[in-house]
Amino acid sequence: MTDVLVLGGTGWLSGRVAEKWTVPTATPRAAGASRGASGRVGPTGAAVTCLARGGREAPYGATLVVGDRDDPGAYDAVAGRDWDEIVDISSNPAHVASALEALAGRTRHWTYISTVSVYAANDEPGADESAGLLALGDAGADEDYGRAKVRAEASVRASLGFRAAIVRPGLIVGPGDPTDRFGYWVGRFALAGDGEVLTPETTERGAQVIDVDDLAEFVQAIGRERWTGVVNAVGDPVGLDRLLADAREVAGHTGAVVPAADAWLEAHDVAYWAGPRSLPLWLPADTTGFWTRSNTAYRLLGGRLRPVRETLERTLADERKRGLDRERRAGLTRSDELALLDLLGDSRA
């Protein structure tokens, strides 16, 4: 039996990773893995332990060990045994470093889930894993998300060398997304019905998404095969016009789509990408490289990329369950959107 420790395991992505390990499933072939008669790696299951703060259940079949990673003894309950695989997703460099200090010597393989936000430049289309990373300042200084992940990656490489895989996902999407970014569009089109929907201009804009279940399946596969290296876990680039058109069709929206120019949106305090009062997935024009990163390595490793339309359908079902008009972490409220549409109409009159 394979023994797996997931640091977390009760959150959105980490919970799905734990679940993939507990449920025997056939998964895509990682590079170097042996093939069965079907050409796919056969079913596997594992004994999974999730180390988390508590308050949420571990996936069915996994064992929950309660531990706060801010506490000095957080790993005591899991450091006295050996593991075949450890998975960490933390963006807190101190948590990553302390986990490595306690556990690096007790595992055969470690998978760290990082992010494409570690890259220094976003203007080079098709850049691969060799692209330069963000520069680090003094240790302990306040760092943004990307730099925090760079520092965590450095700790993983220093402690584990060739026993680690570093996975750099792009925008993770799908049912249960706590960031509310991708689901905003299919949910908003559904909420609007035959009403107007405000969008950014989509010319030469795009997105690069990966379904959360495809990513979790990939993380389980490379952990099982103990693959080592760095890989961008990103989808194929898709034009924002195509993505919004698919979201609109899936949602059954029949109203008008009203685009606004970047300058107009910025002047009216609408933010790029994410967060309150934003238009999610909208990026500045000079960041083409952010949504066109190479996924060649991911595909060579057998990573799955389901059709974006399938993910939109799954996401809409989840949005309906959670409430199309609920308070969101990203996007415009419907009332704010309608007010902006009125202002935009006045400016064009």
Rank of each mutant, 00 (worst) to 15 (best):
Gly323Lys: 10
Arg106Cys: 08
Gly170Glu: 06
Asp214Leu: 08
Ala247Val: 03
Leu133Ile: 09
Tyr145Ser: 07
Val41His: 06
Asp342Glu: 15
His268Val: 09
Glu313Cys: 07
Gly8Leu: 09
Ala245Asp: 15
Asp241Val: 03
Thr10Met: 12
Gly140Leu: 01
Trp227Asn: 00
Gly140Pro: 01
Val156His: 06
Arg306Asp: 00
His109Thr: 06
Pro59Ile: 03
Val48Ser: 03
Arg320Met: 02
Arg334Met: 05
Thr296Leu: 11
Val156Lys: 06
Pro259Phe: 03
Asp262Pro: 01
Val167Phe: 01
Gly126Asp: 08
Ser278Leu: 07
Trp110Gly: 06
Thr228Asp: 07
Thr179His: 08
Ala37Arg: 12
Gly8Arg: 07
Pro24Lys: 11
Phe290Met: 14
His109Glu: 05
Ala139Trp: 01
Arg328His: 02
Leu265Asp: 02
Ala233Gly: 09
Ala26Ser: 10
Ala47Met: 00
Trp227Ser: 11
Val250Arg: 04
Glu327Ala: 15
Asp325Phe: 01
Val197Gln: 10
Met1Gly: 11
Asp177Pro: 06
Gly32Val: 08
Tyr119Trp: 03
Ser98Asn: 15
Ala33Gly: 13
Asp84Cys: 09
Gly140Thr: 04
Trp185Gln: 05
Gly174His: 09
Ala267Asp: 14
Thr63Met: 06
Asp325Cys: 03
His253Arg: 11
Gly235Trp: 04
Arg35His: 10
Ala192Glu: 09
Ile89Lys: 00
Asp269Leu: 12
Leu344Asn: 02
Glu313Gly: 05
Thr333Asp: 11
Ala221Ser: 14
Val231His: 02
Ala135Cys: 00
Gly137Gln: 09
Val4Ala: 09
Asp88Phe: 03
Leu305Phe: 01
Ala139Pro: 01
Thr179Leu: 13
Val66Trp: 00
Arg16Asn: 06
Thr10Gly: 10
Asp142Gly: 13
Gly170Met: 10
Ala102Met: 11
Leu171Phe: 02
Glu101Tyr: 00
Ser117Thr: 13
Asn92Pro: 00
Val250Met: 06
Gly73Cys: 05
Arg242Ile: 08
Pro175Thr: 04
Ala158Leu: 04
Asp211Lys: 03
Ala74Trp: 14
Arg147Glu: 13
Gly275Ile: 12
Glu217Gln: 13
Leu332Ile: 07
Tyr119Val: 07
Asp76Gln: 12
Thr63Ser: 14
Asp76Gly: 02
Ala263Phe: 01
Thr296Ala: 15
Phe182Glu: 03
Leu340His: 05
Gln220His: 13
Phe162Thr: 14
Tyr112Thr: 08
Arg69Met: 09
Thr22Glu: 04
Gly195Ile: 02
Thr228Cys: 14
Val48Met: 02
Val118Lys: 06
Val173Pro: 00
Val4Leu: 05
Ala62Phe: 02
Val66Gly: 00
Ser294Pro: 04
Glu310Trp: 05
Arg151Met: 07
Ala58His: 09
Arg29Asn: 07
Val167Gly: 05
Ala135Phe: 00
Val78Ile: 11
Leu243Asn: 07
Leu332Arg: 08
Arg163Gly: 14
Ala52Val: 07
Asp262Trp: 02
Asp325Leu: 03
Arg163Glu: 08
Ala47Trp: 00
Glu319Ala: 13
Asp3Ser: 15
Ala158Glu: 15
Ser114Asp: 04
Glu196Arg: 15
Val308Trp: 05
Pro178His: 13
Leu301Lys: 08
Gly55Pro: 02
Val4Gly: 09
Thr333Lys: 10
Glu225Gln: 14
Thr228Ile: 10
Ala330Pro: 00
